[in-house]
Amino acid sequence: MLEEKIKNLFPTFDKEHELIIRKEIEGYKIFESRIEAHSERLAFYALIDAAQGVKEVEQKEILTERGVHVDMGRKYFSKKWFYKLIEMMARKKLNRLQIHISENEGFRLKLPGYESLCSNQALSYQDMQDIIQYASKYYIEVIPSFDTPGHLKHILKSYPQYRLKNSESALDITNPKARLFIKGLLSSVMDCFKDSKVVHIGGDEFIPFDQYEFYPDLETYAKSEIDKDATGSDVYIDYINDIGKFVMQYNKIPRIWNDGMYRLDQKSHVSLNADIQITYWTSWHEGMAPLHSFITHNHDVLNFMDENLYFVLGECAGYSYPNVDKMQNNFNPYRFPNRHKNTDSSREQWIEINHKQYLGSYFSIWCDDPKQ
């Protein structure tokens, strides 16, 4: 069976190997025509090496997650396209595919009961099941990414009653019915991705995080429902905790982007649930928290470093396309995004090799200009 999978990825490879699964070894070993591996998945990785001419090697898996993130919310990608991506990922031993299904510009997965939300081009429920199954064939887990409470402009056009005052794309997180609506939609997402252990719930760019004063309803709600000294940022954290708890009820782990949490320019009265994992992508604003804030608060972290790991269609927001030379010369999986230039300490952010809270790194495809 493993040899057949490798044949699909490397059609000219025809050498047979003796395969032995040994739980007492950590990774895998190749000795000419003999492969010993801790698991079937690692034996598959060993065969990938063998198919590329490796005759003798001993490997251990250091990072748990080696992933690719695809922004399908803004731009439609076909099932066939995802199949090709999955095969490419398998050849490189990547093991996570995060699919971003919703954005301000679109919603591209036909979920039962929410078909009316979909853009003209969208994957069917069965399409996504097929993608998940095909990825599983190559030991790749598919993770759903559904952004909330920001990046909801497309959805809020159909549900304007749930829109935050003074915003086109933000959810009114003070409205219990709005929260229930998102939970219902998330429930359908999680039913579709039932085998995924993780759900990315977004959390980024809800509003400009240094401008809560322009959203007075958040402040009013905070003082009424949370604490007399609470502020709008506490309502935001409370919402993320609420949605995170809902996700955990499905025995899944919630993840969020880093830019709105533990801000240096805000004092919070609500603590972010430490079980929520952090995908750290940027520190472009001086108020954004450094990496060590999340480590200190016991969050698991993943490296989505925008400077070297973002492929942004149209090269929007100042991004230039990454290339082989840039990646090889500048990227290190243990180096996170630089701190803002106004920081009074070193700008570089690193995490120790084998740090128990560091799960891995992702390359992201963002479709800011979907016509590209």
Rank of each mutant, 00 (worst) to 15 (best):
S167W: 07
T64S: 04
I240T: 08
A122L: 04
L264V: 08
A37Q: 02
T279Y: 01
K326I: 12
L185W: 03
E105V: 02
S116V: 11
F336K: 01
I143A: 09
L309I: 15
M248Q: 15
V270F: 01
M72W: 00
R339L: 13
Q121L: 14
I253Y: 01
N104P: 11
H292W: 08
L218E: 11
A317Y: 14
S268Q: 09
K356V: 01
S119H: 03
L123K: 00
F246M: 02
L9I: 15
I353G: 04
L85A: 06
E40Q: 14
G318H: 06
E219T: 12
T148D: 03
D368G: 08
W350H: 06
N338V: 09
Y221H: 10
Q249C: 14
A43Y: 06
L171Q: 03
I351Y: 06
N166Y: 05
D130K: 12
R339Y: 07
T64R: 07
Q328G: 09
R335E: 14
H269T: 11
I201Y: 02
M288H: 07
K92H: 08
Y76R: 02
E168W: 01
A274G: 03
L218D: 06
K29F: 10
Y262V: 07
I182K: 08
G287H: 03
T231Q: 02
N329Q: 08
M89D: 03
R108L: 12
